[in-house]
Design a protein around this nucleic acid. Structure first.
Length: 237
DNA sequence: AATGTTGACAACCGCTATGTT
DNA sequence: AAACATAGCGGTTGTCAACAT
């Protein structure tokens, strides 16, 4: 039997927050009577001191009889990952492919379970790309070592950067890199590696023979990407 | 034991799209 | 066509429990 509800509440006040079992029962009863529409009317007629919007959400996300409750399966997780890759944060579209799951549930699951996983994967991928790029630079330095007078110390410097790149949480592994104290070639190399070399800049020659400065400082680069930089020194990639 | 932090989930809010009168 | 109501969507916040300090 359905009774007037919330008589102890002041007239006009709306309840918020978690739903009580008796509210759920009352809402389900009225949706059974009136169907899944006219939520403002349902809210009013039922005597629930909830907005129509709140009633709709409670029904769609929790009370609907065709909802699955409980843990996501591996198949569902896989589906979410795949669809999110294709569609981005289109939660309702993703939910259409997962019967019994709501957009809200999928959104929450993504945020709490999957987002971190994907971020780690992307981070690992980026690390690998950086490491590969630096290996190419290193190869070049080895080839033209005489011409550029590259010392073993500088080669080792790049080596330690590569090592740091794999362990640094920031992705780019300059050992003790400090922009305010860095030598020009260090600064430019840092820009190069971090992909921020997207503007024209003039490099002042920092005459320190037998160092990477010769290579990174003694020229003007007009660069949209790393390839151009290296191309200006003779088609390395 | 008390307090702070984190993760999981539910619910809310603002806005847009769609339907109805 | 316009005004209003209703439904839908996605970002954000609130709540609670488990765990750490």
């Amino acid at each position: 039997m359905i009774m007037a509800y919330g008589a102890d509440l002041k007239e006009g006040s709306m309840r918020k927050g978690p739903w009580l079992e008796e509210e759920d029962e009352r809402l389900a009863a009225f949706v059974g009577l009136m169907g899944e529409r006219r939520w403002d009317t349902i809210a009013k007629v039922s005597g629930l001191r909830r907005s129509g919007k709140s009633c709709r959400l409670r029904w769609l996300n929790y009370l609907r009889p065709d909802l699955k409750h409980g843990q996501m399966t591996a198949e569902e997780e896989c589906m979410i990952l795949q669809l999110h890759g294709q569609l981005g944060n289109k939660w309702s579209k993703i939910a259409r492919s997962l019967p019994g799951r709501t957009d809200n549930e999928i959104k929450n699951y993504w945020r709490t379970h999957l987002r971190k996983k994907v971020q780690v994967q992307e981070h690992d991928k980026l690390q690998k790309e950086i490491k590969d790029a630096m290996s190419k630079v290193q190869e070049f330095l080895m080839q033209d070592g005489d011409h550029l007078s590259i010392q073993a110390a500088n080669y080792n410097y790049i080596d330690s950067m590569k090592e740091n790149t794999l362990t640094s949480p920031f992705g780019f592994g300059f050992p003790d890199y400090n922009p305010s104290t860095a030598l020009p070639y260090e600064a430019n190399f840092h820009k190069f590696i971090s992909g921020s070399l997207d503007y024209q800049f003039e490099l002042k020659y920092h005459d320190e023979s037998n160092s990477l400065n010769t290579w990174f400082c003694n020229s003007t680069w007009t660069s949209g990407d790393a390839n151009n930089v290296l191309d200006s020194h003779g088609s390395f990639f």
